[in-house]
């Protein structure tokens, strides 16, 4: 399962990434393997999404979210 499949209010734990380049960016923003990630809301048009991770909010596009594999 990946992050883009979650609905607002659902949460998961980050397992790994499918895109190496994107993973560096995601990790420096605090999306680390083992961190809990909560989908807060979708943008009014369904994309991008807002998530809470390591105590702050992040917004990312759905295709970026799909590179985050959850446990």
């Amino acid at each position: 399962m990946n992050l883009s499949q979650l609905k607002p209010g659902q949460k998961g734990i980050i397992k790994e990434f499918t895109d190496l380049e994107m993973s560096v960016k995601l990790m420096e923003m605090g999306c680390l393997p083992g961190e809990c990630i909560v989908v807060e809301r979708f943008a009014p048009l369904g994309d991008p999404i807002a998530v809470t991770v390591s105590g702050y909010q992040l917004s990312l596009r759905k295709h970026e979210a799909s590179t985050i594999i959850l446990l």
Binding site: M22, K25, Y56, L58, S59
Partner: peptide
């Protein structure tokens, strides 16, 4: 430049 959208939503 690769287009990222990963962005902080500050309080």
């Amino acid at each position: 430049e690769r287009g990222y959208f990963i962005m902080e939503l500050p309080v």
